[in-house]
Amino acid sequence: MADSRRRLLLDVDTGIDDAVALLYLLATPGVSIEAITCTAGNVGARQVATNNLALLELCGHAGVEVAVGSEVPLTIPLVTTEETHGDQGIGYAVLPPPRGHISGRHAVDVWLEAVRCHPGQVTGLVTGPLTNLALAIRAEPDLPMLLKGLVIMGGAFNYPGNTTPVAEWNIHVDPHAAKEVFAAYEGLPHGKLPVVCALETTERIECTPAHVDAVARAAGAGRELLDPDGPAGARSSSDNAVVACLSDALRFYMEFHRLYDQGYVAHLHDLFAAMVATGEAGFEERLATVDVETESSLTVGQTVADFAGMWKRAPNARIVSGNEPNAVFELMVRRLSHLARIHG
């Protein structure tokens, strides 16, 4: 009988929106998380791993392997963003110290074993800097063809950056790695090209207090009210552990966006990318050849897409050009409320 599971291999820098994406994946029937590899980005790689272990245990999936890869970018110094995601990376959320341990394997070894043992069956999902993936491709240049597919959250195309005027966070943390990854995909068949979820579509995924309340109510956990005008630092009083984790993480993220006059919302970039990886999110796409600026101090980390073929180079990316935020949140509420009913 054919294996109908959707095998996913995650590389993350958890991160509030990475955490919400992981909760969604753990709640989605038919999804098999082969392993989670960790890179430095939102916080350091060891803290990322701790966050993933704790979230897995919260949701009853303690057996998933969590491995650390490179703890610094390929070439430039590491910069993290605790001001955006909190000192631990998951906002105000506090989870029990995980009982599980970080794998003894390096992230690159995890990726190589997964694609070699299951060629054409594993979809990669990268929601952090591309450091580990670049190292894995260095070790196995055929990795792009061995994967079933790849989804990347990163970049900004003809759209303002969220880290510099032109650069998105994940790419800016390690632009050299991103440049190597896109170069490795140039000229491959359409189905093998990475689906790139960039800011122009991921910033449309604006989570509001009403979405959090909807998860809580659908889970039978009562109301969960996040006050857009409330003081910073409030905590959830929910007895449901999943709802409280979600609420406390997203409250921090909403306060961050409010501080920068973006509204009391949370951009769930990685949740959308996860839904693309599972095949549950509809989207439109445009083929392009993508390159990444690594030299200019003014525009380092900028992702440049040639949609018109001016460079006379083969496409290396499928850039998401349209999505459906309402459908994303309907699915989020359904999946996360079910998870909260079971594990809350």
Rank of each mutant, 00 (worst) to 15 (best):
G60R: 10
T294I: 14
A244F: 01
S237A: 13
G44D: 15
D3A: 07
L147S: 03
A67T: 12
E203C: 12
T81W: 04
K148M: 14
G60L: 15
L188D: 01
G86R: 05
T294K: 10
L26K: 00
G128S: 13
A241D: 10
Y159K: 03
V181C: 04
I342K: 15
R235M: 11
G309V: 12
N316K: 11
L8C: 06
G63L: 06
M310L: 13
L130K: 08
E57Q: 09
R258Q: 11
T39A: 15
I16F: 11
V300A: 12
G91W: 05
L298E: 12
F307V: 12
A234R: 13
A45M: 04
V215I: 15
P228Y: 08
C59Y: 04
V292N: 01
A234E: 10
V66N: 01
F272C: 00
G100W: 08
P175W: 13
R6A: 13
L26M: 09
A340H: 10
V115E: 06
E65Q: 09
I33V: 09
V196H: 02
D11K: 06
A139C: 06
Y253I: 02
I16K: 13
A183K: 03
D174P: 11
S297M: 10
A234S: 15
T289A: 04
I137R: 00
V300D: 04
R5C: 14
T37Y: 01
E330N: 08
V122P: 00
A288M: 07
L287G: 04
V64K: 01
S238D: 09
A198G: 05
R223V: 08
V195R: 02
T28E: 14
V122Q: 03
L25I: 05
H343F: 12
V79Y: 07
L8E: 01
V276Y: 00
V12H: 07
G128K: 01
D18Q: 10
A232E: 15
E180S: 13
G63P: 00
G154D: 05
G15V: 01
M145Q: 14
R6D: 06
V328A: 00
A305T: 12
R138Q: 09
D229F: 11
G44C: 06
V265N: 07
V20K: 03
E285S: 08
L259K: 13
V290G: 02
H190R: 05
T299P: 02
F283V: 08
D11W: 02
A198P: 01
F157D: 01
G41I: 05
A305P: 10
N51I: 09
E83L: 06
A139L: 02
N316M: 11
K179T: 07
A114D: 02
